[in-house]
């Protein structure tokens, strides 16, 4: 398993339900985007920054996150200072930093499974398109399970290319990586089908057998 960013803890933010946090984050995001006052935005940035140590995450996490966004903020702030004025540059920088820090704060305090459960509930209306929530959950589980496997495949492919003295051509890795992933997909779907799983569409097209009593077991 690849590690999610979640840091376990018992703070107020950790204890809030994931749905409430995501809803609050969306509301905060909209409010920040539509607030033109640089002082309010700087205040919001300060509050979000303080929420990190208050949630037991320390001072380093927000600083590191902020540094990651620095090139993009610098680019935008530079353009704004040049075209509009420095107040505007301050406003945009404070807004972007506050947005990023608040979103990351939710990621850090919410377990992967809790966020996924909320997202799956939001996707439930897709059932009207014939995409059953169970199918979505199955594919999501598969993706999460296979991210580290494919990361390993990528590493192997790079090592194989390096052994042939082709380590400088990163793009040459893509064809073998994708072919190996597609082959893996064939093996996985055979294994899944062998265990008797099928989708709605397949069940509709399956020739009816008199041995099949609909419980998935044959007599």
């Amino acid at each position: 398993m690849i590690g999610s960013l979640h840091v376990p803890g018992h703070s107020l933010l950790h204890r809030l339900p994931a749905g409430v946090k995501l809803l609050g984050l969306s509301a905060l995001g909209l409010a920040l985007v539509f607030t033109p006052d640089p002082w309010i935005l700087l205040g919001a940035l300060g509050v979000v920054f303080l929420a990190y140590p208050l949630s037991g995450l320390g001072w380093r996490a927000p600083v590191r996150q902020g540094l990651g966004l620095l090139p993009l903020i610098a680019l935008i702030a530079g353009t704004q200072a040049w075209l509009v004025g420095w107040q505007d540059a301050v406003m945009v920088s404070a807004r972007l930093a506050a947005l990023l820090l608040s979103a990351t704060l939710v990621s850090l305090t919410t377990p992967l499974a809790a966020t996924l459960a909320v997202l799956e509930r939001l996707l439930a209306p897709l059932a009207w398109l014939g995409l059953a929530p169970r199918a979505v959950a199955f594919a999501l589980g598969l993706t999460i399970r296979f991210v580290p496997v494919l990361g390993g495949l990528l590493r192997e492919t790079r090592e194989a290319a390096a052994a042939r003295g082709r380590d400088r051509v990163a793009w040459a890795l893509l064809v073998p990586l994708i072919l190996r992933a597609l082959r893996l997909a064939d093996q996985v779907s055979e294994a899944v089908e062998a265990r008797g799983l099928e989708t709605h569409a397949e069940r509709a097209h399956r020739p009816q057998s008199h041995l099949d009593d609909g419980t998935g077991q044959t007599a």
């Binding site: 199918a135 199955f138 594919a139 494919l150 779907s189 989708t199 709605h200 569409a201």
Partner: peptide, 28 residues
């Protein structure tokens, strides 16, 4: 409801694995 998206198990697996490929590309 008649399914508009008729996906097979293989389609779902391909989608899941390709999402994984894109995630792995983030490691380059």
């Amino acid at each position: 409801v008649r399914p508009v998206l008729s996906l097979s198990v293989r389609d779902l697996v391909l989608m899941g694995l390709f999402a994984g490929v894109v995630a792995a590309l983030g490691l380059l």
